[in-house]
Design a protein around this nucleic acid. Sequence first.
DNA 1: CTGAAAGCATACTAAAATAGTATGATTAAT
DNA 2: ATTAATCATACTATTTTAGTATGCTTTCAG
Lengths: 129, 129
Amino acid sequence: MLNFSTKGEYGLRAVVNLARSYPKIKNIKAISIEENISAKYLERLIGELRKNNLVKSIKGKNGGYVLARKPREISAGEVIEVMEGQMTSKCNGTHCAHMKDCASSVVWIKLGEQIKKTLYGIKLSELIK
Amino acid sequence: MLNFSTKGEYGLRAVVNLARSYPKIKNIKAISIEENISAKYLERLIGELRKNNLVKSIKGKNGGYVLARKPREISAGEVIEVMEGQMTSKCNGTHCAHMKDCASSVVWIKLGEQIKKTLYGIKLSELIK
DNA sequence: CTGAAAGCATACTAAAATAGTATGATTAAT
DNA sequence: ATTAATCATACTATTTTAGTATGCTTTCAG
């Protein structure tokens, strides 16, 4: 019904992978092999997660990544929001004839709320059991 | 958080528009003007809705479209599913190291269920009040 | 202090999806 | 017969996705 890009999937899988080995550090190479994701691409994606304070990086030899918080303090929603970008209700009532009371916008707003509720309710801790 | 294409939005707006004038027939031109959507593009999109039995067409002069069922018997989910295509849980556990019990897939599955529940619960009748 | 192994930054590119256009055929009321 | 509508298909431009490539910086180990 909706197309999710692999960004969200890859990001989530990487973070879940880190949750499994938490609090040990793990490098891109290891994650990319285990998850079967292009190392270079993953490197870029995980960079986004770092900039948004979901993972911490340790530079230099023997470096790698760790979750920035405990697995039970990070939700799937946070990860996916960073990777996919904020959900925007495209139908905001500005372009159709019904103006502010655009009937269709109700659908996108309700849906957005439900998605957030669902995804923010899922913590990494519950995914690694 | 997720990118919806305009297809779903346009399709929904067109159908809601038809719901307002139900059971009178209305042509593409009128809908496209009222909704400010390219007529040619809308024509193609609404063709999809017809093939999936959500609207009926009346050909020839004075022709146009009508909802195939009453507004309270058509849900937003049906419309959006036709326009956007079936939601597929991309992470199906086949490509990562954890195989069948892929932790991340749980997220997409739960999310998909919630989205369906939400969208199928919204009927056109409730959008035109 | 030097080399290797890690992350960091940025630019490039190929493929796919999106959002539309264009052309013309078919249908049916007048 | 004319006109106004849908129907079918093919084409195209733009954007997004999914990567690749190159090179720099940081830090541990010897």
